[in-house]
Write a protein that binds this DNA or RNA. Sequence first.
RNA 1: GGUCCGUUCGUCUAGGGGUUAGGACGUAUCCCUUUCACGGAUAAAACACGGGUUCGAUUCCCGUACGGACUACCA
Length: 513
Amino acid sequence: MTKEVRVRFAPSPTGALHIGGLRTALYNYLFARKMGGKFLLRIEDTDQTRFVPGAEEYIQESLEWMGISPDESPWNPGEVGPYRQSERKASYMNYALDLVEKGHAYYAFDTAEELEAMRERLTAARVVQPQYNSITRTQMKNSLTLSPEEVKERLASGDPYVIRAKLPLKEEVRFHDLIRDWVLVHSSTLDDKVLMKSDGMPTYHLANIVDDHLMGITHVIRGEEWLPSAPLHVLLYRFFGWEDTMPQFAHLPLLLKPDGNGKLSKRDGDKLGFPVFPLNWIDPFTGEKSSGFRETGYLPDALLNFLAFLGWNPGDEREIFSLEELVEAFSIERIGKSGTKFDIAKAKWYNEHYLRSRNQEDLIASLQQDAQAAGTTLSQEKAGAIISLLRDRVTFPGDFWKDSQFLHQAPSDFDSEVAAKKWNADATTLLQAYAIALESGIGVPFDGASAKALLESTAEASGIKLGKVMQAVRLAVTGLGAGPDLMEVFAILGPQEVAKRIRFALKTLATVD
RNA sequence: GGUCCGUUCGUCUAGGGGUUAGGACGUAUCCCUUUCACGGAUAAAACACGGGUUCGAUUCCCGUACGGACUACCA
C-alpha cells in the first residue's frame, strides 16, 4: 500500500506568475490528478524585501483561469496549514536550532563587509570558488570558531546572526531524479548555506524542506534551476532524520527564449511580441504594464494544451488534449530532459483550433462586448452572422471585431494596388447595374444566395464574366482586396448599404482607369 | 572560472544497436474557391563533432564543442 500522493506548487509572490511557473503548476496538477492525490499551493514569502502586493491574488486568479486550482491553499486551507510561509515563521527557528544541537548547523556572526572581505581575499588568492565552507568557516566569526561564552554573549546581547548549515567536507551526495535519473554531486563543491536569516526568517532551503516534510509532500516537481541546490536539500533531510520520507524529485527542463538565448524571464515581458504572463499585470511600484495571455485572447484550453506539450508528450501522435485527457495521459517519465524554446506560433495554432470549436453564444457575447467598448451595439443576429463569417479565419476572439471593421464602417478609401489592377470598365458597368437592381429590389428577402443570384443575372445581362470582376466588386464594397465570402458580407450589410457603398466607390474610383 | 544538466528537421518532439529516422507547428507548392483564409494533398527540412564498443551506431561509452542552470542573509 502506497501513501497518497501530495505535490505542491510553491511560488513566491514577487510579481506576476510567469508562464514557466504556470507550466510547473500544471505538471504538478496533472500528476496529482493522475495519481489520485492532492495538489497544494504554498506561498513562499520568506523574503520580506521582495513582497509585491497583489502577486498572491494574481497567482490564485491565474490558476483558477487555467482550471487548475489547488486542493489546499491559503484561501482553501487543508489540515497542514498555514499555507503561507510568513505565517509559519515561528516554527522554523526550532528546526534550525535542532540542527545546531545535532551539530549540523551553526551560528555565524559575520557582517556583510566581513563576508565581502573574505570573498575578496579568496579571489585574490586565486581560489576558484570563494565560498563559506568547511575550510573558510574556520577563519570566520561563528559558533565553531568563537568560544562558547562569546557565542552565548553575542546571542544574549542581540548581535545579528544567521544559522548556517554545516556541510561535510568530503562526501558524495547522490540522489535520484525522476527525470534525470541519478545525479551525483561532491559535497566539497557545496557551501554552508544560510538557513536562518538575521531577520529571523528562514531561507528557501530551510523553509522548503521543513514545510514539505510537515505537509506530507511526496513528490517535488519544480524547475531545473533548483537542481544545483537539490543536494543541499537531500543533506538537510538526512540531518533532520527524515530520509525515509524524503519526497521524490523531478526537475523540469526550463522554458527558453525563442532564440535559445537564455531562459524565458519575467523581464522579457512584451519585448518578444507575445505575453509571458497568464494575466495582465501592472507592477504596483513602477506602474509598468505587461500583457497576459488571457487578455491577448488566448483560451485557457489552448494555453493548457500548448503548455503541457512544452517538454512533455504522450508518446503517440495526438496533439489535442483537454485537461481531462491530459490528466489521463500524463506521466513524469515522459517529460523531456532538455530546455524548451518558447514558440508562440504553436500557441496561436492551438488557439485557433480551440476557438473554432468554441460555442457560438460565448463568441457572440464577446463580440458584442467589443462592439460596446468601441461605442456601438451589435444585435445578437448580426453578431452571430459575423462569427459564422469569420470563425475559420481568426486567431483570437478580439479578431471578430477587428476583422469585421469593414462591415461596421463603409470604406473611405480603397486598396490602391487592387484598384489599379482590377478596377476597369467592366467592373463599373456591372456595379452600376447591380446598384440599380439592389435599390429596386429593396424590401425583398435578401440573403447570400439571393444576393449572388442577383449579381449573376446582372452580370449575364451585361455580358460580363463574373469571375473577372469579383475582386473589383469586393473592393467597391469593402475597400479591401481580400476577405470572407462576399455574398455573406452583402447579406449582413443589406441591399441598401451595399448599393450606397457601390455608388460611393463608383464616384471615388471614377478617375482610375 | 567552478559545479551540475542538456544536445534528433527553423521550433515542439517520437524513436531506439540494423527504420525510406515518424508526427505537429511554421514554410513552399498544388487542389478546392469570386479573393483571402479554412480544409485536403504534396514537398523541402534533423540524429552537433571526434574517438571507441560492435558484424553494424542516431541509439551504448569516453572526450570535444555548443547551449543552459546555479554559484546571495532571492526564491
